[in-house]
């Protein structure tokens, strides 16, 4: 509970309002800039080897002229029952007890890519090569985020470095983490405020309130993965 003794577990949850999301992809760039996600160039991307941790899925619906588009930002859903975790032979991806997140330990990863096959959200990317940031482009690399080398998996972390910093800051000031204080890069950048991030255990948090919505759903919830990303379905007014 908020204002409690501070020993409660935090449970970080993201709410994405698909009715607000306009598909602009600012989150994609923000994520890449925060998390040192490598760019791979045209040929590699044409081959399906983009490193995007976050992608905005776009579907065309209908036929001319009643064409519609739907967007759905899709990233690691930080499943409570994550299918990627048990299949890793070396515990490179596992559940962190502190943050209740699905974490990827780059140093431990040996690159079996089993987790990626088992992820129903196709949220994981693999470092096919060593990617470069030609100097001085590497100056903007975030010192809080490991730069990954070839042969390992990576994925959205809910910007765990920000969560940790925010929690440390709050602890140092002897207070609870305030709602909205910790934001992953995507939520922070989102121009339409479609992405909201917060602590589920805080009953007054914005995510908790938004999740009450009738529009709320979890993607592929029937698989029992218990994702920590809650989508709010988009509405359409039919003319």
């Amino acid at each position: 509970m908020a204002g409690g003794n501070g020993h409660e577990h935090t449970k970080w949850v993201m709410v994405i309002d698909l009715d607000k999301c306009n598909g602009c992809n600012a989150c994609v760039t923000a994520c890449a800039m925060e998390n040192n996600v490598a760019f791979t160039g045209e040929e590699e991307n044409a081959y399906g080897r983009g490193m995007h941790w976050l992608r905005v899925i776009r579907y065309w619906e209908g036929e001319w002229p009643n064409v519609r588009v739907r967007y759905m930002p899709m990233m690691c859903q930080q499943c409570s029952n994550a299918p990627c975790e048990p299949v890793c032979p070396v515990f490179a991806t596992l559940h962190s007890e502190a943050e209740e997140l699905n974490i990827q330990v780059y140093n431990r990863c040996i690159g079996t890519r089993y987790c990626a096959n088992n992820c129903p959200y196709i949220a994981r990317t693999f470092n096919w090569f060593d990617y470069e940031w030609p100097e001085p482009l590497n100056f903007h690399l975030n010192p809080d985020v490991t730069v990954r080398r070839r042969g390992i998996m990576e994925k959205c972390t809910f910007c765990i470095q920000r969560i940790n910093q925010g929690e440390e800051q709050a602890a140092a000031e002897g207070r609870e983490v305030r709602d909205g204080e910790i934001q992953p890069a995507c939520a922070q950048a989102c121009p339409t405020e479609a992405i909201v991030f917060g602590n589920w255990q805080d009953p007054n948090s914005k995510v908790r309130q938004l999740a009450q919505s009738q529009r709320g759903f979890k993607y592929l919830h029937e698989l029992g993965t218990e994702p920590k990303v809650i989508y709010l379905a988009s509405e359409k007014h039919d003319f």
């Binding site: 600012a26 030609p134 903007h140 922070q188 950048a189 989102c190 121009p191 405020e193």
Partner: peptide, 20 residues
């Protein structure tokens, strides 16, 4: 103007600053 939000172009501005 932007109330804390940024677009993709703003996000990538660092790559202009440090562009080789």
């Amino acid at each position: 103007v932007n109330r804390g939000a940024t677009c993709a172009r703003g996000q990538a501005a660092l790559e202009g600053l440090y562009n080789p």
